[in-house]
Design a protein around this nucleic acid. Structure first.
Length: 875
RNA sequence: GCCCGGAUGGCGAAAUCGGCAGACGCAGCGGACUUAAAAUCCGCAGACCCGCGAGGGUUGUGGGGGUUCAAGUCCCCCUCCGGGCACCA
């Protein structure tokens, strides 16, 4: 084909077509803007199956970044594809518009947060419209507007009524930079998730909490149902919830005023267990949590967290101890600041007191240790050095007793051949108990049950389950958030704002300062109100809600964004939910996605919805990387979407975002790659434009062409259709989908001569062009719309059915079979598709190259895999 | 320390079920068109070696071992990179 002489090119083809996205795209953007119904959903009565595709809503920082572009390009391709597949698609967008940056901007530029936020939204919406994402803007949700946050307040009151929202004084994570409280989830390695350099402090504050722990078990159990979620995310949530089965056991504290004289000296060091004493008096008790109650006869000390209340008591009368405990506390604090308690060198101090093991009456020294967490379990443990690594380390360091109470089972007997020293610490639960009184010879698992039951029967303990998950602290001492709709009346105490007085509007006339405390507290006209119950003067709550409240249910609001009789129209939500596909960054794997699941369960229990889970399928896309690092201002490697769009067009930019890597992997942004995609789009444009007139003028799309060229082209077309259709259904490797379209275009342009000469029937040409444009539509919507029109089509391409894959047309009739000799490729033979084993063997045998390769050697074996290869093994 | 990813040409990547490694694209090189350039089109291209050439040989998917007629793909061990968790009793 390349040998065609220059004069063979027809003079008529002289017309040059130049692909100019800067002209095409704004023209279509304008046209689309004039059609508000373009991306509209059909009502629930629609015949079509529904499909809810959702991308995580952005925080309106003012600038779309490449991560957004990637996220939204994936969702947009899917939405467009589903439309073409005949689904009733809901594809909405909104703004996670409350949050701290607005206040920081206010401080810096003296712009009111509201104004700043709304103008950022306008700017980002402009960017989204320019890129051409298929959002139905009539469902737009902006969380900082009263018609949205009003329902945050409504939900809060419902939760308060159900006891799910409560107030408690607690140690909270305080970020001095944010001047506010952070949820546990927002503390990363002891630092603020927004300020990597800022160490989070602990403060005592009255806070509002949501009782997410009520749902801990269900949140855990239902993870099993979420088989459309990445396993990684499910594992992270499972770990976060942190369910732990074990037992609580009460150890009575010995009243040491009654201690016999002869023990005094022995008691000083606290390294040994003292024997049971019949007449021991007690003063108070310590509850420990353990998952290994079966090893309780091996307990040789009690370890308390430095913040344990009993420690304070002990220290009150012992200034030495007080000093030592302070040191331990400082160590913990330092370790937390350094990035976690994980590597802390274990230190401890003996309190001088003893606690009584309820199982055998033995008296165990009570220590305080820096590796015990006050916030987990009961802040106290029984230390079993022989069967716990941490306790073992500690006991070795301080010379505490080590007592073996379980051993491996050999032939059903605990093995005692004297090797236990080498085994320590020995933690395997496939073991048998020894030195454990009446529980001897039981297996660990069985012993755990029996001993917990025993403890319960005797009233000093019980089997219990604890969770790492803590209740969700939602109070923020900030201005730019949803006001918590609560009042404090001297007579009636805490009173919710009546529903008919919602929303509690966030006042505009406020001065943002850097000082601590809630800004709303300084606004007398906001704070001072009347109690709705008794009419007496009352104070409003001045804290606002964590912004994760906003994003916990926003996707329900999308289904009826203008609804004003409730947070959403329940019938419409019932139709659309659960979300069929949610797409976003993995950084929200625990925070947003666990709160959202919690909120859904609460809404279900309020009777608003029927679904237990909000999201059927979740997809987490990879990061956008430039020069080996995540794009960030501090690294100076940020690529602006506006720049890319201005230079190469929106189609090229978003298509590159899909082409450069599969969507779940990190994507390395290379501008030359965008240029390449843009060149490809230009090639498509020129190709289609060149033949558009010819295609327009034919009415038939008859593809029953006998000629080989047509068949080859149609074959390639259908192979491409098949590949892309299959990928959308599951694998989502849009990079190879786009590569397949490129191959198709390469095949088509290589057949230029056949197409222009009229050897390929007009009906085939028309089919090829139309299908090519349809295949492009999810990835390059502007160009597809333009070319669709050039092909004489009036109907929106979005409402045109996706091409139907025809397997018969896609099938190859002749295939190449690689032939190996001893596993090395020697030649390739062409045979008819479907050639069976024997025929294939014969065909290979008669091949000259094969004969040369096996000449003079003994054929040991011939492996023939029809349709795949032939391998001849020779000696 | 534990749990997930990942490692393939100069670069981004492909190879979906164990069957021709490197599709597609970028960068590169050669050529056509042009006064020239841009744009476009055609061709070459993993590395090394032999050959003027057509061509041929060797080697090659982070490293080592294994299974198999056949391994990027399966099994065992190890290294490095990214992410998550981390004294959770």
């Amino acid at each position: 084909m390349s040998s065609s002489k220059p004069e063979a090119a027809p003079a008529a083809a002289a017309k040059e077509y130049r692909y100019n996205p800067a002209e095409i795209e704004p023209r279509w953007q304008e046209r689309w803007a004039a059609q508000p119904d373009l991306y509209a959903t059909e009502p629930a009565s629609s015949e079509k199956p529904k499909y809810y595709v959702l991308e995580m809503l952005p925080y309106p920082s003012g600038q779309l970044h490449m991560g957004h572009v990637r996220n939204y390009s994936i969702g947009d391709a899917l939405a467009r594809y589903m439309w073409m597949q005949g689904y009733n698609v809901l594809h909405p967008m909104g703004w996670d518009a409350f949050g701290l940056p607005a206040e920081n901007a206010a401080l810096k530029n003296n712009t009111p947060p509201r104004e700043w936020t709304l103008s950022n939204i306008a700017a980002m919406k402009r960017q989204m419209l320019r890129i051409g994402f298929s959002y139905d803007w009539r469902n737009e949700v902006t969380t900082c507007l009263p018609d949205y946050y009003r329902w945050n307040q409504w939900f809060f009151i419902r939760m308060f009524e159900k006891g799910l929202a409560y107030r408690k004084k607690s140690k909270v994570n305080w970020c001095p930079e944010c001047a506010t409280v952070l949820a546990n989830e927002q503390v990363v390695n002891g630092r603020c998730w927004r300020h990597e350099d800022t160490i989070v402090e602990q403060r005592d504050l009255e806070q509002w909490f949501l009782r997410i722990t009520n749902y801990a078990q269900e949140l855990l159990d239902d993870l099993q149902k979420l088989d459309g979620w990445p396993e990684k995310v499910r594992t992270m949530q499972r770990n976060w919830i942190g369910r732990s089965e074990g037992a609580e056991v009460e150890f009575a504290v010995e009243d040491d005023t009654s201690v016999p004289e002869d023990e005094r000296s022995q008691r000083r060091k606290g390294t040994t267990v003292l024997p049971a004493r019949e007449d021991a008096k007690t003063a108070g008790k310590i509850t420990v949590f353990t998952t290994r109650i079966d090893t309780i006869f091996g307990a040789t000390s009690i370890q308390l967290a430095p913040e344990h209340p009993l420690v304070k008591e002990f220290a009150a009368s012992d200034s030495n101890l007080a000093d030592e405990v302070n040191t331990l506390l400082t160590q913990q604090k330092k370790a937390r600041e350094a990035g976690g308690l994980g590597e802390i060198e274990k230190h401890g101090v003996f309190t001088g007191h003893y606690a009584i093991n309820p199982f055998n009456g033995e008296r165990l020294p009570i220590w305080v240790a820096n590796y015990i967490l006050a916030e987990y379990g009961t802040g106290a443990i029984m230390s079993v050095p022989a069967h716990d690594e941490r306790d073992y380390d500690f006991a070795k360091k301080y010379g505490l007793e080590i007592r073996v109470v379980i051993l491996p089972s050999r032939n059903g007997e605990p093995n005692t051949n004297g090797e236990e020293e080498n085994l320590l610490p020995f933690t395997d639960e496939q073991s048998l108990l020894i030195n454990s009184g009446e529980f001897n010879t039981l297996g660990c698992k069985e012993a755990q049950q029996k001993m917990a039951a025993f403890a319960q029967e005797k009233g000093f303990g019980k089997a219990t389950i604890i969770f790492r998950l803590k209740d969700w602290g939602v109070s923020r001492q900030r201005y730019w958030g949803t006001p918590i709709p609560m009042l404090y009346c001297e007579k009636d105490g805490i009173v919710p704002v009546p529903d008919d007085q919602l929303p509690v509007l966030l006042p505009d006339n406020i001065e943002i300062t850097q000082q601590g405390g809630s800004p709303l507290g300084k606004l007398a006209e906001f704070v001072n109100t009347k109690c709705p119950k008794c009419g007496a003067p009352a104070r409003r709550e001045t804290d606002t809600m964590d912004t994760f409240v906003d994003s916990s249910w926003y996707f329900y609001r999308y289904t009826s964004a203008k609804y004003d009789k409730g947070p959403f129209d329940t019938a419409t939500a019932a139709y659309w939910f659960p979300i069929d596909q949610y797409i976003g960054g993995v950084e929200h794997a625990i925070l947003h996605l666990i709160y959202s699941r919690f909120w859904t369960k609460v809404m279900r229990d309020l009777g608003l919805i029927k679904n237990d889970e909000p999201v059927t399928r979740l997809f987490t896309q990879g990061m956008v990387i430039k020069n080996g690092a995540k794009m960030s201002k501090s690294k100076g490697n940020v690529v602006s979407p506006d720049d890319m769009v201005a230079r190469y067009g929106a189609d090229a930019t978003r298509m590159y975002a899909l082409f450069a890597a599969p969507p779940d992997r990190d994507l390395d942004w290379q501008e030359d790659g965008v240029a390449g995609v843009s060149r490809f789009l230009g090639k498509v444009y020129r190709f289609v434009m060149k033949h558009a007139e010819a295609a327009r003028s034919v009415t038939n799309t008859d593809t029953n062409a006998a000629d080989a060229a047509s068949q080859a082209l149609l074959r390639k077309l259908h192979q491409t259709i098949g590949k892309i259709t299959e990928d959308f259904a599951g694998r989502w490797h849009f990079n190879t989908c786009i590569a397949a379209i490129m191959e198709l275009v390469n095949t088509l342009t290589a057949a230029e001569e056949e197409l222009t000469s009229g050897r390929v029937p007009a009906g085939v040409l028309k089919t090829l062009l139309e299908n090519l444009v349809l295949l492009l539509a999810p990835f390059a919507p502007y160009l597809a719309a333009e070319l669709w029109q050039e092909l004489g089509k009036e109907q929106s391409i979005l409402r045109t059915p996706w091409p139907k894959y025809d397997e018969a047309l896609a099938r190859e009739d002749e295939i190449e079979i690689p032939v190996q000799v001893n596993g090395k490729l020697r030649t390739v033979v062409k045979v008819a598709a479907g050639t069976d084993q024997d025929a294939l063997r014969e065909a290979v045998k008669s091949d000259a190259k094969v004969q040369a390769a096996v000449a003079g050697k003994e054929t040991v074996k011939v492996i023939v895999v029809p349709g795949k290869l032939v391998n001849i093994v020779v000696k």
